[in-house]
Nucleic acid binder design. Structure first.
Lengths: 202, 202
DNA sequence: GTAATCTATGTCAGAGGATGACTTATCACA
DNA sequence: TGTGATAAGTCATCCTCTGACATAGATTAC
């Protein structure tokens, strides 16, 4: 990685951190891109070269998680039931969080606090989830050897999996720690698996 | 309903119809509020008094469906398993569509075509769904006599139900008719019920 | 029927998000 | 060290959305 690349990554994170702090301090809506840009001493135009929109600041985690899920899914044995594979993919996302640096963890927790304070942002993330689902459906349908357009079960498997993930992330405690969130998530996965008929996702 | 009210409702629908047609003709993004307002001969400012945002045009159906779901849920026997009640609520939405006037049906089908062409709008609707879910969770938790903050199962029941609905609405045929959509939906409901353990939602 | 009131609409000004076109600065590599 | 690539800044502009204020039209009361 050249100097240029490293510098870009540093700027990216600087923008993200400045934005998260400003959002938590004075609210999402009332923070302008101009302020964020000012805080990291770049022009507003440059901000939009790092993040496609103000909303995009909130979606970096989702994008990151999606990548891990797709990778994990591809690495699971093809004959494993699809829902099981998806639950593994989900756990991989958790493991990634658990094994990240303190800086990354802090960002993650700040993002969670932000979303708790601003339900609209949860919606944003969920909306992005719909996009992710389409890709997951394709992967699942391919594994199951069916046409993703026609096979409803593939859609249902992915939909159930992704909403299990969503429910797991909703932690009642205001300032939940990473281990607490992980535990909650594990509970939700277990609950989902106990609710579904064995072999339903074959 | 006074003259004033009726006139307002007429304007509302005129805006909606003009917007849907423009969107389908020339795309969502490339249609401006100014154009829509021009088409129904009102000022852009007035547009925003009828719809809180351009996006809001696309959410009227969701809001309508949500209302029906909440009403139906309230009218179901309290001892019925929650998921079953939610499936009934969903069917009530379908019945409403099936029994609506030709104008309303046309609007619904146009909206579907629009969403097919613009995945972002699907995300929008899904995001609104997250908001709806919160209300449904409260209703379900109340019926089950548990704390909505603590009880994960209530969350999971609602999440599974609402994504069953979403999968059901996704119809592969480009220009599906209402009966086709209804049939598809019924199939999805059946599939979901067959996948879940009897009594999981008690 | 007219006055008083309420409310829907229009006009205007402006903030904030986002993008394109163009220029300037900075880095990378020969 | 010079040259090409690319990151960043500047400027202009579009579009969404909001607040403040004025006006026209409907509703109600007398």
């Amino acid at each position: 990685m050249g100097l240029r690349e490293r510098k870009k990554e540093k700027t990216r994170l600087a923008i993200l951190d400045a934005a998260l702090d400003l959002f938590l301090e004075q609210g999402y809506e009332s923070t302008t891109v101009e302020q964020i840009a000012g805080a990291v001493e770049i022009s507003p135009r440059t901000f939009f070269r790092y993040f496609t929109s103000k909303d995009h600041l909130v979606l970096w985690f989702h994008d990151h998680g999606q990548e891990i899920m797709l990778e994990t899914l591809a690495s699971r044995p093809a004959d494993e039931p699809a829902f099981t594979s998806l639950m593994h993919a989900m756990r991989a996302v958790l493991n990634d969080i658990a094994s990240s640096t303190p800086d990354e963890t802090e960002r993650f927790l700040k993002l969670r606090r932000l979303m708790e304070a601003h339900p609209r942002l949860v919606g944003l993330s969920v909306a992005r989830g719909a996009e992710t689902e389409r890709r997951l459906v394709e992967a699942v349908a391919a594994r199951r050897g069916v046409d993703p357009e026609e096979d409803q079960l593939s859609h249902l498997i992915v939909a159930f999996a992704s909403c299990t993930m969503r429910v797991g992330f909703e932690c009642p405690r205001r300032d939940a720690t990473v281990p607490e969130i992980t535990r909650r998530m594990a509970e939700t996965i277990e609950l989902a698996e106990r609710s579904l008929l064995p072999g339903w996702d074959r």
